[in-house]
Simulated scan of single mutants.
Amino acid sequence: MTIRVVVAEDQSAVRAGLVLILGSAPDIEVVGEAADGERAVELARELRPNLVLMDVQMPRMDGVTATRLVVSEGLADVLVLTTFDLDEYVFGALRAGASGFLLKDTDAKDLITAVRTVGRGEGLIAPAVTRRLIAEFAAPSRPVADAAVLDVLTPREREVLSALGLGLSNAEIAVRLDMAEATAKTHVSKVLGKLELRSRVQAAVLAQELGI
């Protein structure tokens, strides 16, 4: 499978570097480049890539707004690029449904691995970071989810949701619950669909809020 990527970054030199790195991977194809969020959304609608590598601070339309549009329209997964670890833009992008984030100083090997991970439909946030995100998302001012929302899940799907709450990957969920990785991926998709969640991060937050 070739992962088709749109790179959205307003700094031309940084964008060129990202394109060069991703283009060196045999299973990744950069199909479009955007210098602002508005163009990123246009390209996502036109090209239907697997993934948009999205800078969060861009002109005309910021990356958070662009992420919200791309995800809500089901155009592609979004991997956010940011200069600062867990800044306000990152929180906004993850709330908007981004599948994960990377710092701009990530090395070439990790960038390619990240794109492949999200391209497989998995989130890209380490468990330690997930806990910090949960603390932010589940702030006292935020309403706590009603446990009744879990009624739509089977017992097995509740176990998968619990594993997502720990920030586990599909492979780790498979080992934890003694199932094939493909089966774990299917369960994750069903959990997100039934609970109307846009990302694994949102599933992790819900699991923590409900104490499962």
Rank of each mutant, 00 (worst) to 15 (best):
Arg116Met: 03
Arg116Ala: 07
Thr117Glu: 03
Val118Gly: 06
Gly119Trp: 01
Arg120Gly: 08
Arg120Ser: 14
Arg120Asp: 13
Gly121His: 06
Glu122Asp: 05
Glu122Arg: 07
Leu124Arg: 00
Ile125Gly: 00
Ile125Phe: 00
Ile125Thr: 02
Ala126Asp: 10
Ala128Leu: 09
Val129Arg: 08
Thr130Met: 15
Thr130Val: 10
Thr130Leu: 10
Arg132Phe: 02
Leu133Trp: 04
Ala135Asn: 15
Glu136Val: 05
Glu136Lys: 09
Glu136Asp: 01
Phe137Arg: 00
Phe137Thr: 01
Ala138Asn: 08
Ala138Pro: 08
Ala139Glu: 07
Ala139Tyr: 01
Pro140Gln: 07
Ala145Val: 11
Val149Asn: 05
Val149Thr: 12
Leu150Glu: 08
Asp151Ile: 11
Asp151Gln: 07
Asp151His: 07
Val152Cys: 06
Val152Gly: 04
Leu153Glu: 08
Arg156Met: 14
Glu157Ser: 05
Glu157Gln: 14
Val160Gly: 00
Ser162Phe: 00
Ser162Ala: 14
Leu164Ile: 02
Leu164Asp: 02
Leu164Gln: 04
Gly165His: 10
Gly167Tyr: 06
Gly167Met: 14
Gly167Asp: 15
Leu168Gln: 05
Leu168Pro: 02
Ser169Lys: 11
Ser169Ala: 13
Asn170Pro: 13
Ala171Trp: 04
Glu172Cys: 10
Glu172Ile: 01
Ile173Met: 08
Ala174Phe: 03
Arg176Tyr: 06
Arg176Trp: 09
Leu177Glu: 05
Asp178Glu: 15
Asp178Leu: 12
Met179Asn: 11
Glu181Gly: 05
Ala182Ile: 15
Thr183Cys: 09
Thr183Tyr: 06
Thr183Val: 05
Ala184Trp: 00
Lys185Phe: 06
Lys185Glu: 15
Thr186Cys: 03
Thr186Asn: 11
Thr186Met: 13
Ser189Glu: 15
Ser189Thr: 11
Ser189Trp: 15
Lys190Asn: 12
Val191Ile: 04
Val191Asn: 09
Leu192Ala: 12
Leu192Ser: 04
Gly193Val: 05
Leu195Gly: 00
Leu195Ser: 03
Leu195Cys: 04
Glu196Gly: 13
Glu196Phe: 04
Glu196Asn: 13
Leu197Cys: 02
Leu197Gln: 01
Arg198Val: 10
Arg198Ile: 03
Arg200Phe: 13
Gln202Glu: 15
Ala203Phe: 00
Ala204Arg: 01
Val205Tyr: 00
Leu206Gly: 02
Ala207Cys: 05
Gln208Trp: 14
Gln208Glu: 12
Glu209Pro: 02
Gly211Cys: 14
Gly211Ala: 14
Gly211Met: 13
